[in-house]
Design a protein around this nucleic acid. Sequence first.
DNA 1: GCAATATATCGATAAATGTCAATATATTAT
DNA 2: ATAATATATTGACATTTATCGATATATTGC
Lengths: 104, 104
Amino acid sequence: MNNSDKVKVFKAFCDERRIEILNQLKCGEKCACKLLEDVDISQATLSHHMKILCDSGIVNGRKEGKWMHYSINKEGCQLAEDLLKEMIQPCVCQSNNQEDCCTK
Amino acid sequence: MNNSDKVKVFKAFCDERRIEILNQLKCGEKCACKLLEDVDISQATLSHHMKILCDSGIVNGRKEGKWMHYSINKEGCQLAEDLLKEMIQPCVCQSNNQEDCCTK
DNA sequence: GCAATATATCGATAAATGTCAATATATTAT
DNA sequence: ATAATATATTGACATTTATCGATATATTGC
């Protein structure tokens, strides 16, 4: 997975509105029209955020007739957790680096 | 912790350059001048990104003479992991929501 | 004190992002 | 077929972010 894809995952958590939306979805699947009632943004803006959330893999969209149902995507979340761990985990080459950098 | 602060944490992972920088820091503490060699950006831009990384709590800065040493902040990382989990964890009110939303 | 070095800040600019009203598309009900 | 409804897309605009060169600040060595 390249850095651009990694960024895409964490974009889900980088906007206050999207955090509100995720918070709504913690209570289970909701359709866009319900989210629209609970979050104070226009329909176009909601649609925009839902696209970003789905692209991140954190949210899943399911079309049923004219309704879009959104829910938190377990697999995507697991992937995000794993990714986060991997991105901050000390690497083996730590040992190569014992001599202090720049403190000549 | 409010949503604005949560956003701040995940900003650390929402830029390709910052991911490169974090990747460098996985190998241990490095000073800004070393990072500048390894990541292809200007000194001003590096300084900008280091500020965002430190503000997120993911990175720690330590001044030693005229050098700034940066390293991954274990506590901040743990906080980010916990936060991520909390943000996507199903809430108890799930049970209130069994009837399908919008499928009248 | 002065010169050299490392880093931060400032100001300008370009690119990306969030926002909305308007419009388009898809689905359902009549 | 038409009207009504739900959602997506478009186009315009404002805000935020990333970037850099220039400058300021802090530290060290002479």
